[in-house]
Amino acid sequence: MKIREINVWKENLELTRPYTIAFKTVSAVENVIVEIVAENGLTGIGAGNPSAEVVGEKLSDTMAALQPENLEWLLGRDLRSFQLLCEELALRLPRNPAARAALDIALHDLFAKYLEVPLVTFLGQRLDALPTSITIGIKSVAETLAEAEEYVGRGFTHLKVKVGETLEQDLERLIKLREAHGHNVTIRIDANQGWTTYDLANFCTQAQALDIELIEQPLPAPVVDDLRELPDAVKDLVAADESLLSPVDAFNLAQSPRACGIYNIKLMKCGGVYAGRQIGTVARQAGIDLMWGCNDESIVSITAALHAAFSCPNTKYIDLDGSLDLAKDVVSGGFILENGIMRPNGKPGLGVVRV
């Protein structure tokens, strides 16, 4: 079955709840949508959300990479050469991971529909369901507690708190949050590169009683060797995010002494499901756990990440809340979310429906 047509367009997806992280406030996000049409009319959909801060790719770069002249190589190709097509994406678009992700996800959706199975079934399902964390941005103590109360009321049991202003403020918010909810909630934190090595060591000393599940990207992305020198008990808590952009990064982070105990895989950093699963394989061989994260993204790419996550036996955490605060989306369906627990919906491909 051959590829007949590729359609690309932008969607501006506003957030119902703007948030602040260490380097910016986010109120809306533009996603690039890709639709691949087969000769029999079957379609696959993908989505890309570029990150200039993390991978140096702006929306204009993504759109430029997805111009028709750059996609001619895919037209007329046989979908049954699926693996080869996924490999070629990295060669054709080496500097545009969000563009690659959009095409990669559309190819995965289309191929799984061709097989008439959910994508996770084609990939080899290892997990059925996991609780996702939901994110609280950098806010005052009162705002943090109010938002946490709302999320707990909606059934979420895992909260990810953005930190990275001052250590004192970070600790105050987390202490109050733990006092308010006890151990009924799991707390993980994301410093978004906002700490120093001293801050990290100081935090781990002062926060022992808080039972923090993990610490995402505490140090600036290039500062990897400093992580290698930390005690294993600290490294086990550290999830590499901005330091982990590719399978090559995964290999380097795993070199002895390893730099962290967790890899946070985001499809928009690495270029899609194919590369994400390569990172997962490296991590499994190195004894490193997986966390699957996201940006503010359409249900399309969130669902793709969920399917990839559940095909990896070393997946331990998911942080796939990126579509929950969108005021609109291009699709519905994809996953089932009940009391904070996510699972695929069991329908062919990604299981999404255009709206």
Rank of each mutant, 00 (worst) to 15 (best):
R95E: 13
I138R: 04
E88F: 01
K58L: 02
R100N: 15
F122Q: 15
E149A: 06
P97W: 13
E69G: 09
S81E: 15
R77S: 12
R188N: 04
L167E: 10
L107N: 12
P68K: 11
D104E: 15
L107D: 10
E69P: 09
T62H: 07
R188Q: 08
G76T: 06
L103G: 11
R126W: 00
V120T: 13
E179N: 05
L71W: 07
A148V: 05
N70R: 13
I175H: 05
E116G: 05
A65D: 10
L71R: 12
D128Y: 09
L115K: 15
V141A: 03
D128H: 12
V185E: 07
K113E: 02
D170P: 04
P50V: 04
V163A: 10
L115Q: 15
T121W: 07
R188V: 00
V117D: 00
A101Y: 12
H108K: 06
L171R: 09
E87W: 01
R80I: 02
I105V: 13
R173C: 02
C86T: 09
A146P: 00
S81R: 14
A102E: 13
A191G: 12
L74M: 12
A112D: 10
A90F: 05
D170I: 02
K139Q: 09
Y151I: 01
V185G: 05
G164C: 03
H158G: 00
V152W: 01
L59P: 07
L66A: 08
H108A: 01
C86Q: 09
F122A: 14
L79T: 07
P131C: 02
A106G: 06
A64K: 13
L71P: 04
A99C: 08
L85D: 06
A102Y: 12
L84Q: 13
V55F: 13
R100M: 12
H183V: 06
D78C: 08
S140Q: 05
V55D: 14
I105H: 08
L91N: 15
E179C: 03
A148M: 04
V120K: 04
S140I: 00
H158K: 13
L89T: 12
T135Y: 05
D104H: 14
V120I: 12
R126D: 06
R154G: 00
L66N: 08
G56R: 14
I175Y: 10
D109F: 02
T144K: 09
G76I: 01
P118K: 09
L123V: 04
R92D: 07
L171F: 06
E168V: 09
T186A: 03
S133D: 15
T157N: 11
L79R: 13
E147F: 01
A102V: 09
R154S: 04
L84P: 00
V120P: 13
A129D: 05
L91Q: 14
L130P: 07
R77P: 06
K160R: 11
L66V: 09
L71N: 10
R100K: 15
F111G: 08
H158A: 11
V54H: 14
L79D: 11
R100S: 13
G153M: 07
H183Q: 14
T62A: 09
D104L: 05
G137K: 08
I138N: 06
I175L: 03
Q67H: 11
G137T: 12
R95N: 14
L74S: 04
Y114G: 00
V141F: 00
S133P: 03
Q67M: 11
L174P: 06
